[in-house]
Design a protein around this nucleic acid. Structure first.
Lengths: 101, 101
DNA sequence: GGCGTCGTTCGATCGTTGTCGAACAAGGGT
DNA sequence: ACCCTTGTTCGACAACGATCGAACGACGCC
């Protein structure tokens, strides 16, 4: 099956923002920004694997991540360069974990 | 009635992003970024005044805008300084209108 | 006071989306 | 060959959100 990873320029801004406007997905993006490439299963944020798979699909179809098969796992990585080029400052602004007031 | 304009630091990032992840609201924000302060009625993007009022409320409660009464109208303005300080690059990244492919 | 304008709020509708369990598919190891 | 691990997909359900018309409130003006 094709992973359906669109060109970032073909994704409407609202879709990119919507993809980031979820707590679970934001945690995934943060983990990817810190740890680089990671297997899907390494993100366990209290949701079922079905939900996690759904979130990874949203991120992928928003043009924010790429996925490649590696044996029985799938490795996900952040498309940071492309995002930074098209939306400079966006990831930086969103990724910095602020203290909860 | 109090306009309920929260401190930006008290608003979760996901709420800020969700507020920007809508086409109508994005148009409003762009208009505010260009034209400065404007009356609610000046935004007519094909939605009813009820819907428009709803969108302005979302933006206000996300800490992105301020509203003040002025006679029979209400003037809305973008809290650009505060947003830029807390999320540097976010507005710049989002506000630039890209050509539709 | 009465009217028109501007905006908010209410209630309803309807599509979208986050969530889950279960079923399925693909790989690797023994 | 068998099984276990890893992910995806499918239906279902619940919650949220965008939208509207209509009712309401506040203000200025004549």
């Amino acid at each position: 099956m094709e992973p359906h990873e669109p060109d970032l320029t073909a994704v409407p801004v609202t879709s990119v923002l919507a993809a980031l406007a979820d707590d679970v997905r934001l945690q995934i993006v943060r983990a990817l920004a810190e740890g680089g490439e990671a297997a899907c299963g390494s993100f366990d944020f209290g949701v079922s694997k079905a939900t996690r798979s759904h979130h990874l699909k949203v991120l992928r179809e928003a043009g924010l991540t790429r996925t490649r098969a590696a044996g029985t796992s799938r490795l996900v990585r952040l498309r940071r360069d492309e995002v930074d080029e098209l939306y400079p400052g966006l990831l930086d602004a969103v990724l910095t974990q602020r203290p909860p007031a």
